[in-house]
Amino acid sequence: MPTRRAILKATATTFLAAASSAALPDLVFSKAPLKGGQAPGYYRLNIGAYEVTALSDGTIAIPLAKLYANTTVAHAEAALAAAFQGPSSQTSVNAYLVNTGERLVLIDAGTGTFLGPTLGKLVANIQSSGYKPEEIDDVILTHVHTDHSGGLVAEGKRVFANATVRVNRREAEFWLDSNEEKKATAAVQKHFAEARACLTPYIEAEKFEVFGDDAEILPGLGSVLMAGHTPGHSAIVIESQGQKLMFWGDITHGDVLQFDEPDVAIAFDVNQQMAVAARKAAFQHAADGAYLVAGAHIAFPGIGHLRRDDTNYDWVPLNYSL
């Protein structure tokens, strides 16, 4: 004769089997397509009363080890590999938008359509960040290389229709000088042609101004001449309520080798010896001052501090914050 326990056990087994059978159709999974892409490339922080928005123009794979100078390819590749970067390193191109409360100022303008489809994302990211290109009052260039000025134009027209472009006087005179262009190598001559294409629409519209060495550019925005990478390469400085941020431009390319070995130059430097001297001075000043710096080719958002370590310097990225 079945016991009560046996009856309950049999009932439970039958119920579970039925429930499992009923649930089987829900266990069939669809194959969702891969999405690709990243979130919009902007990052916001406050420097005192100023709002700073880091903007990504994209990334590009560059064979940095083959472009570095004053070292060997093997050594550079080993240093990059130790930081989990391959022979072609994904290199950021960053720009920065400063809202002082009185003016909206863009520092560097990205690449536009000059350097391929993985770049040229600046305008889209400006819009994603809540601003519009026509709202920008000024564009300050750390220098005129195409990855900093290419985004000024699209199909020969000004992208920032209401902005005045501001460049160090030495920088403007160099890149707009036909005699300098004639003396340049074929590779560098391309940069002269691109500089004219990017700057001329603003010059013709009387929306182009130059500033002096170590000069105040606009109220609250100063400059520090760091020549070498280009003749008028300048860092841009903001200070507010005791906080400071220096936009370095191209003091470094990448965030691995040159912090440990500041003597390493890169093929893009117009004067490598001066570029090395400028980098060493910038590193020392930033480490001593403990202020934030922003690099155009440091992994996005490219903002952080420098500290000394047993191999010269260490890059300390800004801690992410909402």
Rank of each mutant, 00 (worst) to 15 (best):
M246E: 15
E180A: 12
F15H: 05
E181W: 07
F15T: 14
P40D: 04
E180F: 02
L306C: 07
V105E: 04
A205H: 02
L119Y: 04
K207D: 06
A267C: 01
L16A: 14
P301N: 10
N179H: 12
P63M: 02
Y50Q: 11
I126R: 10
N70T: 05
G295L: 05
Y50W: 08
F300C: 11
E134Y: 13
A296R: 13
V167A: 09
A227K: 10
Q273K: 14
A17N: 06
V276S: 04
I236F: 03
R279E: 02
V165N: 11
G228A: 03
G249P: 05
G295F: 00
H143A: 14
V159W: 03
L245A: 13
V105C: 04
I107F: 07
N312W: 02
R158K: 14
F211V: 06
E155I: 00
T142D: 08
D309P: 05
P133C: 08
P219H: 11
V210A: 13
V224Y: 02
H145W: 11
I7Q: 10
V159D: 09
G302Q: 05
H253Q: 07
Q258W: 00
S92F: 01
A163G: 09
P25M: 07
V139Q: 09
E173N: 13
A161T: 15
L292T: 04
A82C: 09
A83S: 14
I107K: 07
A76M: 03
S20P: 00
I217Q: 12
N312H: 15
E206W: 04
K121R: 13
F174T: 01
L45T: 07
I140Q: 09
L115G: 01
T146R: 14
V144D: 08
T11R: 09
S149C: 12
L106E: 06
S149E: 06
T164L: 03
Q273P: 00
A32S: 13
L122P: 03
Q85T: 05
D138I: 02
L199N: 09
M226G: 12
T59F: 03
T230D: 14
I298T: 13
L106R: 09
D269V: 00
G58Y: 00
R166S: 09
L80C: 08
A197H: 07
P201N: 12
W315V: 10
W315N: 12
G86S: 14
Q90I: 03
T252F: 13
R166D: 02
V165M: 10
V98M: 05
L27F: 14
A195M: 05
E204N: 15
Y96I: 04
N179C: 03
A299M: 11
R279D: 00
D177L: 06
L306S: 08
I62D: 04
I60Y: 00
L64W: 01
D213A: 14
R196M: 10
R279P: 03
L27I: 09
T113C: 00
T14V: 15
A79P: 01
D310M: 11
I303P: 10
A18K: 02
F192K: 08
G212P: 01
G304T: 06
K9F: 05
P87L: 02
M246P: 00
L67M: 12
G48P: 06
